[in-house]
Amino acid sequence: MRTSQTPLSLKDAHLINAMLTIGYVLPLYFTKYTRLSFSKTQANNWSRSKNPSERWRDDPTVIKARLLSVSVSMIASLSLMHYIVVTNQSNATNSVWDTATRYLGFSFRMRDLPAHLVTPMLFLGPLYGRYLARDLPFMRPRTLNKPNKNTFNWIVFRNYVIAPISEEVVWRSCLVCAYRLAGASNAFIVFFSPISFGSAHLHHVWETYNMYGRTRQALWRALLLTIFQFTYTTLFGFHSAFLLLRTGSLLPSISAHIFCNFMGFPQLQEELQRYSHRRRRKPYLGLVSCFN
C-alpha cells in the first residue's frame, strides 16, 4: 500500500517492472527491420550457414534497427521514472540533474572506482587463461572471423556500448528506482528485480528454435540454452543491482556488464584441461579459478 513515506506502492513498482520489460523487448518485433526471419533449413550437426533470404541478429541492418529500438525504449523509461520522481519528491527545487543523480544513479565519485574492479576480481581465473593464450587486448591485436569490417564494428558497438548501457539503465537505474520509491528492502531489490532482466532474454528461445530447423531436437536445444541464459543473466542481475545499491552509481554496473560481455561465461574446466601440460601454471590457474 502506498504511504506518505513511499510515493509508490509495491503493486505500482511491479506494474512499472512489467511495463519497462515489455517496452524493451516487444518493440524488437514491431517492424520488419527489427524482426528476424528464418528458413526451414535444418542444421547439420548443430551448425548451418545463413541463407541469403534470412535475417539473423548479427546482420548489420538488424543491429542498426534494434539499436534504435532499445535506445528509444531506454529514453522512454528514463523519462517515465524522472516524471514519477519529480512529481513525488518533496523538494521541488531540485534540478533535473540532482534528481537523476540521487534517484537514478547518474553520478561519478572517485571513491566508487574500486567497485569497478569487483567483477574483474571474480574473473581472475578466466583472465589468467586469456593471458596464457595471449588473448588479452593489450597483448596482441584481436582478430575476429566476421564477413566484413562493417559487420564486426556493428556487433562490437551493440555488445559493448548500446546493449550494456541501455539494459543497465532500464533494469538497474529505472527499475531499482521504482522499487526504492515503493519502500522495498535492498535484499528484495537485489534478489527480485533481476528476475525480469533474466526473463527479458526468454524470447531467444524462438530464435534458437528457428535457427536449428524447427525440429523437436531444435526445440529441446532452444529450451536448454534459454534456461541457461535466463539463469546466468539473472545471477548477473543480482550482482549488478548490488553494485548500484552499494555505490549509488550506475557506472560500476555498466562497466561490469561490458566486462562480462567481453569475457563471456567462464569455462573453468575447459581452461584447466587446456593448460594441464603447464605444470607450474596449472596450480595457480586452479587457485585463481576459486574466485569465480
Score class of each variant (00 low, 15 high):
177 C>E: 01
178 A>Y: 04
131 Y>W: 14
156 V>N: 14
123 F>H: 03
163 A>T: 08
156 V>M: 10
131 Y>T: 06
121 M>K: 10
235 L>Q: 08
137 P>N: 03
173 S>G: 03
136 L>A: 01
161 V>K: 07
167 E>I: 01
234 T>E: 06
224 L>F: 12
187 A>L: 15
169 V>E: 00
131 Y>P: 02
191 F>A: 06
169 V>L: 01
130 R>G: 01
233 T>F: 04
179 Y>S: 05
135 D>W: 15
230 F>G: 03
229 Q>C: 14
161 V>C: 07
143 T>D: 13
190 V>F: 09
212 Y>M: 12
233 T>W: 06
138 F>I: 09
123 F>M: 07
223 L>H: 09
151 T>L: 14
180 R>F: 00
134 R>S: 08
180 R>T: 06
140 R>A: 14
235 L>C: 15
174 C>Q: 00
154 W>P: 09
168 E>R: 00
207 E>Y: 15
224 L>H: 15
180 R>V: 06
119 T>P: 00
226 T>V: 12
234 T>W: 13
157 F>E: 11
151 T>E: 05
203 H>P: 13
227 I>F: 15
160 Y>R: 07
130 R>I: 03
232 Y>L: 07
160 Y>M: 10
211 M>N: 08
207 E>V: 11
164 P>Q: 01
182 A>W: 08
113 L>W: 09
167 E>W: 09
219 L>V: 05
206 W>T: 14
165 I>D: 05
212 Y>G: 02
158 R>I: 06
155 I>Q: 09
183 G>R: 04
231 T>R: 13
152 F>S: 13
154 W>S: 04
